[in-house]
Design a protein around this nucleic acid. Structure first.
Length: 566
DNA sequence: GCCGTTTTCGGCCCGACTGTTTTCAGTCG
């Protein structure tokens, strides 16, 4: 995790350099390398030891020295002094919409603004508006920006943003005959959380469409309503932007607004070198439009294979596309079953039969019921005798139901000594054993997981890091060691598809695949409706570049039942 | 500060919008 620390350091340096008015490309160089480092799946200390730092894109002579110094001493001396002279609470103010580095530097220099309170003061007494280049309107903008800055909402979990965007798109389709409409931005790339929600439409009726959009039932506040762009706050407090572009530019605009920014920057760099220009209206050679209607033709015109949105993070996908080696990613339609579902027998709400019927409706071939084990008191964990009864109930159901097979599983607690909460004689009667840590998050988690994986009946480790996106860091666990043991024993690691978990995350999934670990998607559904979270798990898998062959869920029921570990 | 299908020096993604300006700087996505 050293690379994340270094990334954070470089981001701070970029902030300070920007504030000081340094060369913007230097600032950009630090930002870019910070992002690359925070995405790194390999251990930076190993890379450094083996003298391969310069192989990391964006790491040159100077930055390599900074990294080495940080790894040795925990400091980057060149910037220690500079960082000390610029207080963090001042730099924070650059996050106020309308307040950039130039304005902040000017306010700091001439009006001695050092923090938010100072800034509010110079707004109230009128001195900010008196500065060159500023005026009443700009200051009013900053005042509004402060209000937004102070009310800053958490990022929106993907699992909550998706239903909202679907409702809005359905609302727009009611009023218009639209063929070109799509989510864009980080939502389309299926990031685990999104800052705001972008929707793009290809149409000549921009003004009317914005009108309908801003008067949909879930609109709480209208932020903007123009000819081509509308912006609202939903009743849940989420910002949604609608953009309307001409149909012939829909593909180019979709590419542009989907991002990521890093992906687009690299794409345009390539375009430029080969004599093209790319913007949201199309790909141009000189004045001549050569592509724009579809995303496919935008990429193709630049000599690149099409890339799924989930891959567009500048993590090497453009290089692959150049060689025509973009992998076939797993799709929701490849999924034959869900590997982690709770019923009313423990802390879920659904009857097994209803869960099975819903699974069949979703096109699954099988579904694994995995209720909690006896030590999980808070989740009404089952004693051995009850598990036997559930196995009987499932056998009976399988005799009755057609077109769907229910697998009898359990989510068994990994106890504080690394043993499992049920004896092997019970585990071997089950079709699937999923193990999980639910207590003692700081107690020897790595060693416990490793010991648990040595049990031949335990096939999957659920939510391996234990993080909760909204509220919890996760266990104290050495995930590399866990992955190594998983690869050695043939244990699968879970992609828990609940929107607040998504654990493993995309980067860990990518790393697991490299280490030869199989992944298992489980929704951890506690109600029938929560089976829908499967698409979030698939999204994480796609962001980790997984194909159908990397995922246990694409196997048949027989294969899952007969699965023997290495 | 990085980097090389034009380069070891001179570039570095691109455009919209806004407000403050008489031609453009700053901010944003």
């Amino acid at each position: 995790m050293k690379s994340k620390e270094i990334a954070h350091r470089f981001d701070q340096i970029a902030d300070v350099l920007e504030f000081l008015g340094e060369n913007q490309f230097k600032v950009g160089a630090y930002r870019k390398v910070a992002r690359t480092l925070s995405d790194l799946t390999e251990d930076i200390e190993v890379i450094s030891r083996e003298g391969r730092l310069r192989e990391i894109p964006g790491v040159g002579e100077g930055i390599a020295q900074h990294i080495i110094e940080y790894l040795d001493t925990g400091k980057i001396s060149k910037y220690e002094e500079e960082l000390k002279r610029v207080p963090p609470e001042l730099i924070q103010l650059m996050n106020i919409p309308g307040m950039g580095p130039k304005t902040l530097a000017l306010a700091n220099k001439t009006l001695k603004v050092r923090n938010l309170a100072d800034l509010k003061r110079v707004i109230e007494d009128g001195s900010l508006a008196g500065l060159p280049g500023l005026g009443e309107k700009k200051v009013e903008n900053i005042r509004k920006g402060i209000a937004r800055f102070e009310a800053v909402k958490e990022r929106i979990p993907l699992g909550l943003a998706l239903p909202l965007v679907e409702t809005i798109m359905a609302g727009l389709k009611k009023g218009f005959k639209i063929t070109m409409i799509s989510p864009a931005g980080s939502l389309r790339r299926m990031r685990e959380t999104v800052g705001d929600i972008d929707i793009l439409v290809g149409s000549s009726q921009g003004k009317k469409m914005v009108e309908v959009f801003t008067h949909l039932p879930m609109v709480k506040e209208i932020l903007a309503a123009g000819e081509t762009k509308g912006s609202i706050i939903s009743d849940e407090g989420f910002q949604v932007d609608l953009r309307v572009v001409p149909e012939k530019a829909f593909g180019a605009a979709l590419q542009y607004f989907t991002g990521s920014q890093a992906h687009n920057v690299k794409l345009r760099g390539i375009a430029q070198k080969t004599g093209f220009k790319v913007n949201e209206y199309g790909v141009f050679r000189g004045e001549k439009l050569v592509a724009g209607k579809t995303e496919e033709e935008v990429y193709e015109s630049l000599g690149l294979q099409y890339m799924p949105p989930e891959m567009r993070e500048d993590r090497g996908e453009i290089e692959l596309a150049r060689e025509g080696k973009i992998p076939r990613l797993v799709e929701v339609s490849d999924i034959r079953g869900d590997l982690h579902v709770h019923s009313r027998h423990s802390d879920g709400t659904g009857e097994i039969e209803d869960i099975a019927k819903k699974a069949k409706e979703k096109g699954y071939q099988w579904i694994a019921i995995c209720d909690h084990s006896k030590s999980a008191k808070y989740a009404r964990g089952l004693p051995e005798s009850e598990v036997l009864k559930v196995i009987e109930e499932i056998e009976e159901l399988n005799g009755k139901l057609k077109g769907i097979r229910v697998l009898a599983g359990v989510e068994v607690d990994i106890l504080t000594d690394g043993s499992l909460d049920f004896p092997d004689r019970l585990l071997k009667k089950l079709d699937l054993v999923v193990g999980a840590i639910h207590q003692g998050f700081k107690k020897d988690v790595t060693r416990r997981m490793i010991r648990a994986m040595e049990n031949p009946y335990l096939k999957i480790i659920a939510h391996p890091t234990g993080r909760l996106i909204s509220s919890r860091e996760g266990y104290e666990v050495d995930i590399d060691a866990v992955m190594a043991k998983a690869a050695e024993t043939g244990t699968a690691l879970e992609i828990n598809a609940h929107y607040d978990r998504l654990d493993l995350d995309d980067l860990n999934v990518m790393k697991a695949k490299k280490k030869g670990v199989k992944l298992a998607i489980g929704t951890d559904a506690h109600s029938v409706g929560m089976l829908e979270y499967m698409r979030l798990g698939v999204a994480v898998a796609r962001r980790g570049w997984l194909g159908p062959e990397d995922i246990i869920n694409t196997s048949s029921a027989e294969k899952i039942k007969g699965w023997k570990k290495a």
